[in-house]
C-alpha cells in the first residue's frame, strides 16, 4: 500500500506538469490578439491593387477637387497600409522582449519544481542539472532585461512619433493641394514610416529625453517668458481637465494627470504642466497625453 506522502508527491507532480503544459502550450494573454478578418498579406495586397501608382503628370492635369481627392485617398491608403505593417512589426518586437525572460523563467521553474517532486536520485540529478543549465542561460539573458525595458521605451517613442507625424498629415489633408502639395504629403508619409522603425524610435527616445531635460530646466527657472505655441496635445490635456466641472472631481483628475509626470515635487509638476499647455516641449505633451489615454484618464 502506497503511503500518503508518495500519493501527495505524485499528485503534485501531475499538477505541476499540467500547469507547465498549459503555460508552455501558449495562453490567450500571450497570443498576438484576436484573429483578423483578412491576413495582413492579403489586406496589404488589396491596398496595393486598389491604389494606382502616382502619376504626377496626370495629377497636374486634374482639377483642384480631383487633386484634393486623389491626394487624400492616396495618403489614407498608404497610412492604413503602414499601420497594418506597423502592428505586425510592433507585435514582433513585443514578443521578442517578452520571450527572453518569460521562456527561461518558466523552464527553470518547471525543471526545479519537478526535481523536488520526483524521488529517484538519478532523475532528480538530471532535472537539477538541466535546471542549472537553463538558469545559466537565463543569467546570460540578464542583460536582455535591460534591453527589454529599452525596447519598451523605444516602442512607446515610436508610437508617439507616429502620432505626431499623423497629426501633421491630417492637418495637411484639410488644406488645398497648393498649400499641401502631393510631394510634401509623400515626404510626410516617409516620415510616418520612419517614425515606426527602430531607428525612428531610438532617435525619438533621444529627442524625448532631451525634451524632458529642457522642460525640467524651464520649470526650474524663476521667470520663463515664451511665445505661445498652440499644440493639439496641449489643448487635449487642457480639455481633459476642464471638461470636468470645477471642484473636487476636476482636482482629482488633474492630480492623476500630474502623477503621470513622474515628478515628486507637486509644485514643479504643476509648472511643467503649465509649460506643456503653452506649447513648450510638445513631444513631452504628446507622451503625457498618450499615457493619460492609456491610463483611462483622458479620452
Amino acid at each position: 500500500m502506497r503511503g500518503v506522502g508518495e500519493l501527495r508527491r505524485r499528485g503534485m507532480a501531475v499538477v505541476a506538469l499540467v500547469l507547465a503544459g498549459l503555460t508552455l502550450s501558449g495562453c490567450v494573454s500571450v497570443s498576438d490578439g484576436p484573429e483578423r478578418l483578412y491576413p495582413v498579406a492579403v489586406e496589404t495586397q488589396a491596398i496595393r491593387d486598389t491604389i494606382p501608382r502616382i502619376d504626377f503628370i496626370e495629377f497636374v492635369r486634374m482639377s483642384e477637387p480631383e487633386r484634393f481627392k486623389y491626394r487624400n485617398d492616396w495618403i489614407a491608403a498608404r497610412m492604413y497600409a503602414s499601420d497594418i505593417q506597423y502592428t505586425v512589426y510592433e507585435t514582433g518586437l513585443t514578443k521578442e522582449r517578452q520571450n527572453v525572460g518569460f521562456g527561461s523563467t518558466v523552464a527553470t521553474l518547471g525543471l526545479t519544481t519537478a526535481s523536488q517532486l520526483f524521488t529517484p536520485v538519478v532523475t532528480k540529478n538530471v532535472l537539477s542539472g538541466a535546471a542549472g543549465l537553463v538558469t545559466g542561460t537565463r543569467a546570460a539573458y540578464e542583460n536582455d532585461i535591460l534591453l527589454a525595458h529599452s525596447v519598451q521605451w523605444i516602442q512607446s517613442q515610436m508610437r508617439t512619433q507616429r502620432s505626431i507625424v499623423a497629426e501633421r498629415i491630417f492637418r495637411g489633408m484639410k488644406l488645398s493641394t497648393s498649400s499641401y502639395p502631393l510631394a510634401t504629403a509623400l515626404t510626410d508619409l516617409e516620415d510616418y514610416y520612419r517614425a515606426g522603425t527602430l531607428t525612428g524610435g531610438i532617435l525619438g527616445t533621444s529627442d524625448a529625453l532631451g525634451a524632458e531635460a529642457r522642460l525640467a530646466e524651464l520649470a526650474k527657472q524663476d521667470r520663463v517668458e515664451v511665445t505661445f505655441v498652440s499644440t493639439a496635445a496641449g489643448k487635449a490635456l487642457e480639455a481633459c481637465v476642464l471638461r470636468v466641472p470645477a471642484g473636487a472631481a476636476r482636482k482629482a483628475k488633474l492630480n492623476r494627470l500630474l502623477g503621470l509626470m513622474n515628478e515628486p515635487d507637486a509644485a514643479i509638476a504643476a509648472r511643467k504642466f503649465a509649460l506643456l499647455r503653452i506649447g513648450q516641449t510638445p513631444a513631452v505633451a504628446e507622451g503625457l497625453l498618450r499615457d493619460a489615454t492609456l491610463a483611462g484618464i483622458c479620452p
Binding site: 520663463v224 481637465v241 509644485a267 503649465a274 503653452i278
Partner: peptide
C-alpha cells in the same frame, strides 16, 4: 515664486489657459 509669461496667445485659447493656470494653483 516662479513667473511664467506666455505671449501671442490667440483669443480662442486664452480663457482656457487662464482657467488651467488657476487650476494648477497659479
Amino acid at each position: 515664486a516662479k513667473h511664467i509669461v506666455a505671449r501671442e496667445i490667440p483669443k480662442d485659447e486664452v480663457d482656457g489657459i487662464v482657467e488651467m493656470f488657476r487650476e494648477l494653483g497659479a
